[in-house]
Nucleic acid binder design. Structure first.
Length: 894
RNA sequence: AGGCACGUAGCUCAGGGGUUUAGAGCACCGCCUUGACAUGGCGGGGGUCGGCGGUUCAAUUCCGCCCGUGCCUACCA
């Protein structure tokens, strides 16, 4: 047995040193390494969220990543072979935006490549000038430069937090391996006919000039106005009034509809309406989708104002009159030519000239002005605009990262068919165990409500290229019906520089030649493959079989509809499997006012200063205290409590391991009773951890540590434990050894129960003595508490049950009664008691008999009497009479 | 408008397959330097467990309704 000299240890726990020292040791020893030789059953596979490297670091990262880490550390202690990778999600728009701002550059595909171009953070002076235009390859190089820096910043934090990551498994979603995996995924989906290209109305962000998928759309409540506009009916003297919030789309009006049962408009169906301002004749048709209660009950259909317009356009075979261009400005059109049409072409073109080139806001203003003028009426009844627009507030779809409402513009995009697989997707979701279970409802709701196939292509630069070329016809037009998809063995490819099979580079852009698709994938197309990226799907079948599906996917609830959804979709489409068996859904950290933390609000809490102040273990304690799934207001107080726990562990450990008495069999009633309680704690904690209820386990362990260990057992066993040092022999020495053994067992078990949450302090204490006892010298992995067995029945195998289950609580109650008497008398707990008379029921006194020596010793009672008082409840004591020794003279310690 | 979650001490949160005086930490009050720890210890005050009904011998715990908060989905004429 090894005991320590407390004087050899620092007075306080020096967290910063200890954290850096142990992180280095762990990395060097390889305690986190995945062992590819062990079987799937012995392996626990984590599909780690790759953080968006360009995103700002905040305390929420510490929160969710720690929760996963706690589970991982537990699993390792139960003997599992852990696969815990780390990736960086660096491709896509967030990186592009950051690079644009940081270097003050813009990507311009028409600018020639410049060899050896370097970039510097833009000064405020440089920022005042227009951004430098750089070629696409130069821009991509700039992105690579910056993500390297961003990723190292995260890496520093992960190390500091002690994440038990196997850094050999690191990946970037933009690296070659990930690009290849994403492109192979596309190839597989193409071969299985799950993807298609189509030139169709798609949600489009006019600022980013990029297509957007349903999952990236969010509704925002914005002010708007109902405009009531009078339309004429062709060949009749009647008219009707539609209501619209988008009068600027009038030039793109292709139809008018009302509910088939609406008596007001029934007579109009089949006739043509004439739009004001442009005098365009458009069909009037009935539709169940028109709501007689809304607006005026009759409405105009434009290409395209909203998703219903798209539907009407398709179902009714309406004309496509596109008036808004990709940049969000009104494009030139001619009412003399199809698809445009007007009964008064000159007038229509003149009106349109007023808005051509304008953006949506400007155009709306001008159109409304013109609608207020009688000359633009289609009926001759005066101004088409019937009354002052009615101001309303309504929900409008925005790209989640965008600033202007999305437009529906016809563009060619690649899509993945999902709408026909909703039921299958939900069935897959049901096969996954969600923690907490109600998070499955989020997934189900989203899947059920899905209304569009997944738009895969993005008109951006920094991402995985879509591995497709198109043959050019003799006219030089791309033949989109015959896409040339790269072969898996050639991937990754960049169609803008690589050449498809059977063609030469000189044929690029030539009639009869080919053209490469210049789009990249939606970022989620790649990050939805993280389990397969880690398992080397398609490249190493053995590894894939061992690592896929993963066991656990930790992530936050806001990306259920994106990351979780798409990952489930991919696993299903590729291999008809679930991607993982457990989804661990964490909540968000809100600011103390329960508002979401965001950079723009300026309420982001950064983690490192908190770690410096309270220790990494305390930060982990904070994270591990929270229930899964629920959002939690940031409360620094929890860090404080965590630090207190770390300090207490340090001090209690110092005391326990400093005991010089020999370890003897555990035989004393108090010790047996303590061990029995400890055993129950181990059983409960194990159950909780197995159910991913780490917060519960932590709470139980913490509570046990304070109330059963440091505050009570330690105090009760202290005198006896020290008896050996004070010269005890024979039975007394054996009893002393029993105390020392239980103290050491208790600490050993508690340290291991705390280890997943508090890796640093537990490892530090473990190294003082237990490492030598549990593992041979030189075996750095085995000496780590994190590679030591989770406590279990075998730790208690040879220890008898106590004579009386109530012994421990009885001892605690007796000591507390005496302490209360001391507190009432306002004397210190350390004051000697000359004489004590303690009352309890006969049964309670009987139980006390087995442990009274420890109680009286801890309370420093010199002489005592017991009194039977059956009116007292079982397990309670009353101090009938107590005489304290005089307060000792103050003497200097030697 | 639907769905989900939550509403327990001043604050942050546990808990609860019904049963004696409902828990923790922080904060507050009183006391104590005791040989692991003042980054400590002992003791104390503080809650009609959101409201109303129902089931039951018994509900804070189960059920229904309502109110409040948050999130998800829908809502663009």
């Amino acid at each position: 047995m090894r005991s320590i000299d407390p004087k050899s240890l620092s007075k306080h726990f020096e967290a910063v040193d200890v954290e850096q020292r142990w992180d280095r040791t762990w990395q060097e020893s390889g305690v986190y390494h995945y062992d590819a030789d062990r079987t799937r059953n012995e392996t626990f596979v984590v599909d780690t969220p790759p953080p968006t490297a360009s995103g700002s670091l905040h305390i929420g990262h510490v929160f969710s990543y720690t929760q996963a880490d706690v589970v991982v550390r537990y699993k390792r202690m139960t003997g599992m072979n852990i696969f815990y990778p780390m990736g960086w999600d660096d491709n896509g728009l967030p990186t592009e935006r950051r690079v644009q701002n940081y270097f003050h550059i813009r990507c311009d595909p028409n600018t020639p490549y410049q060899e050896g171009m370097t970039f510097e953070q833009a000064s405020s002076k440089v920022r005042k000038k227009p951004a430098t235009l750089v070629s696409r390859p130069n821009f991509i190089e700039a992105c690579y430069d910056l993500i390297k820096e961003d990723e190292s910043e995260f890496s520093v934090l992960w190390h500091r937090m002690g994440l038990a990551v196997d850094w050999r498994q690191e990946y970037q979603t933009i690296d070659e391996h990930c690009r290849r995996t994403a492109q192979r995924s596309f190839r597989d989906l193409f071969d299985k006919d799950h993807v298609y290209t189509s030139d169709a109305p798609t949600m489009w962000d006019v600022d980013f000039q990029c297509a957007v998928a349903q999952a990236e759309v969010e509704d925002r409540e914005v002010p708007g106005a109902f405009h009531k506009i009078e339309f004429a009916v062709e060949g009749e003297d009647t008219s009707f009034v539609i209501a619209t919030t988008r009068p600027e789309l009038l030039a793109g009006c292709v139809g008018v509809t009302a509910h088939p049962e609406d008596e007001r408009f029934k007579s109009l169906f089949g006739k043509r309406a004439i739009t004001p301002l442009f005098n365009a004749p458009v069909p009037i048709f009935p539709s169940e989708m028109a709501d007689p209660e809304k607006g005026t009950g009759i409405l105009m259909v434009c290409t395209f104002g909203d998703q219903t317009d798209v539907q009407w356009w398709r179902e009714e075979g309406l004309a496509l009159r596109q008036i808004i261009g990709l940049q969000g400005r009104f494009i030139p059109v001619d009412f003399a030519e199809a698809p445009f049409e007007s009964l008064d072409v000159a007038k229509a073109n003149a009106a349109y000239a007023e808005i051509e080139g304008k953006n949506i806001k400007q155009a709306q203003k001008r159109i409304v002005e013109m609608l207020g003028e009688a000359e633009h009426s289609a009926t001759g009844n005066g101004p088409p605009l019937q009354e002052e627009p009615e101001q309303i507030s309504h929900a409008v779809k925005f790209f989640e990262k965008g600033d202007r409402p999305l437009e529906l513009l016809p563009t060619r995009q690649w899509f993945c068919r999902l709408l026909d697989k909703k039921a299958e997707m939900i069935a897959k979701g049901e096969q996954i165990t969600w923690h907490p279970p109600y998070m499955f409802a989020r997934y189900r709701d989203w899947t059920e409500n899905l209304s569009l196939d997944w738009c895969l292509s993005r008109q951006r630069y920094f991402g995985v290229p879509i591995p497709v070329w198109y043959p050019l016809t003799a006219d030089g037009e791309p033949d989109y019906d015959k896409p040339l998809v790269a072969k898996a063995e050639d991937m990754p490819v960049d169609p803008t520089t690589d050449v498809p099979d059977g063609y030469e580079e000189v044929q690029r852009g030539q009639p009869g030649g080919f053209t490469g698709d210049s789009d990249i994938f939606d970022t989620w197309f790649t990050s939805s493959m993280t389990p397969q990226i880690s398992s080397h799907w398609g490249e190493n079948d053995d590894r894939h079989a061992n690592l896929f599906p993963a066991d656990m996917r930790p992530q936050a609830h806001d990306i259920i509809r994106t990351w979780a959804f798409y990952t489930i979709a991919k696993a299903m489409l590729h291999e008809d499997k679930v991607p993982w068996h457990n989804a661990l859904i964490s909540g968000w950290i809100l600011d103390p006012d329960r508002k979401k933390m965001s950079k723009s609000k300026g309420n982001v809490t950064t983690p490192l200063p908190l770690i410096e102040k309270y220790t990494a273990d305390a930060a982990r304690y904070w994270a591990a205290s929270a229930r899964l799934g629920s959002d939690t207001a940031f409360d620094e107080n929890i860090f404080k409590i965590g630090k207190r726990l770390v300090t207490k562990l340090f001090n209690a450990s110092k005391f326990v391991l400093a005991q010089q008495g020999q370890v003897q069999p555990i035989t004393q009633e108090l010790d047996l009773a303590f061990v029995a309680k400890l055993k129950t704690l181990v059983e409960d904690s194990t159950k909780n951890y197995d159910a991913y209820q780490y917060a519960h386990a932590l709470q139980d362990t913490e509570s046990f540590f304070w109330t059963h260990f440091t505050d009570t057992y330690l105090e009760l066993a202290k005198v006896r434990a020290r008896a050996f040092e004070d010269g005890a022999t024979g039975d007394e020495a054996a009893a002393s050894g029993s105390a020392v053994a239980s103290l050491r067992l208790g600490l050993s078990v508690l340290l291991r129960l705390f280890a997943p949450v508090l890796p640093y302090i537990t490892e530090e204490v473990w190294s003082w003595a237990y490492a030598d006892e549990f593992a041979p010298e030189g075996d750095a992995i085995a000496r780590s508490i994190h590679a030591t067995s989770w406590p279990s029945g075998s730790d208690f195998a040879e220890i008898a049950a106590p004579a009386d289950a109530a012994s421990f609580d009885t001892a605690v109650a007796a000591l507390a009664a005496i302490n209360r008497a001391k507190a009432d008398a306002e004397v210190s707990m350390g004051r000697d008691v000359e004489q004590l008379r303690l009352a309890a029921s006969v049964e309670t006194l009987r139980i006390l008999g087995g442990i009274s020596k420890d109680v009286l010793g801890a309370a420093r009672v010199a002489a005592h009497e017991f009194e039977t008082k059956d009116s007292l409840e079982a397990g309670t004591f009353e101090v009938v009479n107590i005489v304290f020794a005089p307060k000792p003279e103050k003497h200097k310690k030697d």
